[in-house]
Design a protein around this nucleic acid. Sequence first.
DNA 1: AACAAAAGTAACACTTATGTCACTTTAGAG
DNA 2: CTCTAAAGTGACATAAGTGTTACTTTTGTT
Lengths: 191, 191
Amino acid sequence: MARERKFSTDELYHATKQILLQHGYERFNFGLLAEQLDISRGAIYKYFDNREELITSYMQYEMKFFLKELQAIENYQTFNEKLTFLLDAIFKNSTIPQMITIGRRIPTSGNSKVKESIVQLENLHIDMYKLLQSFIDQGRKEAKLKESIPDSLILGMIFQSIMIPNHFGIPPIEWIQSIKEVICHGILNND
Amino acid sequence: MARERKFSTDELYHATKQILLQHGYERFNFGLLAEQLDISRGAIYKYFDNREELITSYMQYEMKFFLKELQAIENYQTFNEKLTFLLDAIFKNSTIPQMITIGRRIPTSGNSKVKESIVQLENLHIDMYKLLQSFIDQGRKEAKLKESIPDSLILGMIFQSIMIPNHFGIPPIEWIQSIKEVICHGILNND
DNA sequence: AACAAAAGTAACACTTATGTCACTTTAGAG
DNA sequence: CTCTAAAGTGACATAAGTGTTACTTTTGTT
């Protein structure tokens, strides 16, 4: 009953991601996106009213995907196994922390549709936090984690460490292994 | 021999910083800056040809100030004292890591004046790196630092940890103390 | 007082992005 | 084959930022 679409939502989200990573949030615009997808700018407005709505929708999509992957943390029993899994998962999705930082820059617009979308995105963040909170709780229960370190710092360390620029191109396996070591036991020798 | 200036370069840099922190690099514009300083937009062009030139100049200014403060690291003898000093210094200037990240987003423009300014800024980064390198070298010499952890990760950890958002408003003294603990000895108990 | 020179202004032309709308294209239902 | 509705287009008015320039204001010097 209708004409065939020239681009799927997945393709649109993929292009959105590329542009966000290359140009950053503020320089993202529908012209760039249309060009990337080889369609007219107007076509995008058939699906999204504006930039904020598109980007928050995309972030929800990305976040849901990541959350689904994170769920698998429950397949692991011990705290140590879970920690290793978590770091690997974040590394595999290393754009996620970047996206979260970009997400923080979206202005809480007057548009109510966008507001709604931001609320939903925040809910996904909370879901993620809950998932990770139970991981932390386990670490506390098993007395693996130092009591003095706040939960938010533990999670912050894990998420933020992924964004440390690897200027000297250390091989990823080495790099992530070192990050794991620092997060678990610090940079100092203990003798 | 000339009319009195309505704004000093320091005031201009201060306003620049505020706007960069509030609105981010991409939304920084001369209109906003002029409004903040209660002058006309055109006046700024008497001193800076464009946004990139102003921002790179400002970053040089900020970086020089920070470097000067960092020099004091040489007043401390032991590696541990130096580490404490370094973390405190970065915390006191917690906008510096943010500014460095913003700096990375400045497009390597065609304008040769801007290129020159970016080169100078990079040189300041190198100066900072050298200063910190000798600190790392001392840690290695004293066998304080784990051999397996790359230099760039140690510095990256220190710089990046400052940018972990303190969502739950943990008191700064506690927060920084915890960061120190994690960087030095990790999040895990060692028993 | 007349001037030179720097500081500041305001208007202009230009560029880039936005959101809308009347229009065309296309594929399936009847 | 024809009609319909969704998909897509291109032009338009609007908005915001850029960089330039002719102009005015101010101040110290002669």
